[in-house]
Write a protein that binds this DNA or RNA. Sequence first.
DNA 1: CACTTGACCTGTCCGC
DNA 2: TGCGGACAGGTCAAGT
Length: 286
Amino acid sequence: MPELPEVETIKNGLAKTIVGHKIKQIEVFSNKSFLGKKERLLGSEIVLVERRGKNLIVSTDRANILLIHLKMTGQLIYLRGDKRLAGGHPSRDWLAELPNKHTRVMISFSNNSRLFFNDLRKFGWIKIIKNKDKQSLLSGLGPEPLQKNFNDNYLFTVANKYPKRTIKQLLLDQSIVAGIGNIYADEALFLAKINPQSRPADLAKKDYQNLVTSVKKVLRLSLLHGGTSDRDYLNIEGKKGGMQNYLHVYHRQDQDCLLCGEKIVKIKLAGRGTHYCPNCQKGTTK
DNA sequence: CACTTGACCTGTCCGC
DNA sequence: TGCGGACAGGTCAAGT
């Protein structure tokens, strides 16, 4: 489910809601979804919520903190303790039914608010780690795509270390750049007019420049819209994002390209569904 | 070593 | 309507 914009939106939501509260209780409904001894967290106060790539880091005032990865279908839903429903619209009544059959973990706080970790496919996890291990556990991640060290020189250099891979595979490799997933890889390549099957040597320096700019552009736009709710993604209030209305190629196979009118195609590339416009994304400037 | 495939899960959708 | 197979925002481990 969540890529950088979605995880960032969740991080911002958590920072506004759970910081300053103490963990009162943790209920685990699926053992593979919560790793570590939950007792170690009881009584600790949340002091900071951060994001690195697609990981969430929830720090406490103790040595033990939480590392969270939502993988494909993980959701974090926050409910205040006053039991008031968020709006009371019929479509949102499901919030009142939490925990439900997809709730894997429920964390209760000192102010009686609760955080639900829902995850249909059980790929995601919440892990207790030592604060001092935080850096080393995340050390395999590449630069943040919105920071300055993700630039054309960097991508050009690192891509040419892997001449056999396609440019899309490189964008999806978290050790090369951290936070891009299938949606934004396809969207960034469309914006840059680069065919996802291109190999590093097919691309000119200018293409790398365009691609870096396009990655940053599409991620920033998505942040503005609160992320993409293609299937399961919801923010911590249980609401959808809006970026799905602004996608050019992802999940738009057989529809007309918004730029040229040709049909968007979907292929399988390195095991992932890959969407692009064969006309707009023909080649490169090389 | 570098790259590809299958596995992890549950649910939905599409074709027959 | 039912059944089987393919597929789904991600990442590992195992296999080639």
